[in-house]
Amino acid sequence: DRMLARELVSYGAADGLAGPVFYDRGLPDVVGYLELCGLPVPATVDTAARRFRYDPIVFIAPFWPEIFTRDAERRQDLAEAERTGTVMARVYPAFGYRLVALPYADVAARVDFVLESLGAAS
């Protein structure tokens, strides 16, 4: 419930902003995390993920074990992070999004890739 509420607040806060808006997570992630934990997806979560839409193109960072680290923000271990990536790569297309995988590259190259994909110059 808290994840859903947080994502709805984030979605609403961006409503009406000019230009592209980037989210680190979205409503389909709530579905993915529920599935990852083996929990049922409540109708309210499914409905919210279908109703509050993002751009049809979603950038996804593929699992990259060589740069994986655990810290205060990333509490998952390596295996759980890999499973999370697999679940999200399945969930987003199930909600009608087209995934574009970020390249295995440094941050600057990934930014350039995203901007080029959006038709903007870096």
Rank of each mutant, 00 (worst) to 15 (best):
D1F: 14
M3F: 13
L4Q: 05
L4A: 10
L4E: 03
A5L: 08
A5I: 13
E7H: 02
L8P: 03
V9G: 09
V9W: 13
V9D: 14
S10H: 06
S10N: 11
Y11E: 12
Y11F: 11
G12I: 00
G12M: 03
G12S: 14
A14I: 08
A14W: 07
D15Q: 13
G19P: 02
G19S: 10
G19F: 09
P20N: 14
P20C: 15
P20L: 12
V21P: 02
V21Y: 04
F22T: 10
D24M: 07
G26H: 02
P28V: 05
D29W: 00
D29S: 04
G32Y: 04
G32W: 00
Y33Q: 08
Y33N: 09
E35M: 12
E35N: 02
E35P: 02
L36N: 13
C37S: 15
G38P: 04
L39Y: 04
P40F: 07
P40K: 06
V41M: 11
D46C: 04
D46Q: 07
T47D: 04
T47N: 00
T47E: 05
A48N: 04
A48W: 01
A49G: 09
R51V: 00
F52D: 01
F52V: 00
R53G: 15
Y54I: 09
Y54R: 14
D55E: 13
D55A: 12
P56K: 09
I57G: 03
I57M: 03
F59I: 07
F59G: 04
I60R: 03
A61K: 03
A61G: 03
A61P: 02
P62C: 00
F63Q: 00
P65N: 06
P65I: 11
I67Y: 09
I67N: 05
T69V: 13
T69D: 13
R70W: 07
R70Y: 10
D71V: 11
A72I: 12
A72Q: 12
A72M: 07
E73S: 08
E73H: 14
R74Q: 08
R74T: 12
R74W: 05
R74H: 04
R75V: 15
Q76G: 10
D77Q: 07
L78M: 12
A79S: 11
E80T: 15
A81L: 01
A81N: 10
A81V: 05
E82I: 05
E82H: 08
R83H: 13
R83M: 09
T84S: 15
T84N: 14
G85L: 08
G85Q: 05
T86R: 15
T86P: 12
T86D: 08
V87N: 03
M88R: 02
M88V: 11
R90I: 09
V91Y: 02
V91P: 00
Y92K: 10
P93F: 09
A94D: 14
A94S: 15
F95A: 07
G96R: 15
G96T: 09
R98N: 10
A101W: 02
P103D: 08
Y104N: 04
A105W: 04
A105T: 01
D106C: 05
D106A: 12
V107L: 12
A108I: 06
A109E: 15
A109N: 11
R110A: 10
V111P: 04
F113M: 06
F113A: 05
F113Q: 03
L115I: 13
L115V: 12
L115Y: 09
E116W: 03
S117F: 05
S117V: 00
S117Y: 13
S117W: 06
G119N: 12
G119A: 11
A120V: 09
A121V: 07
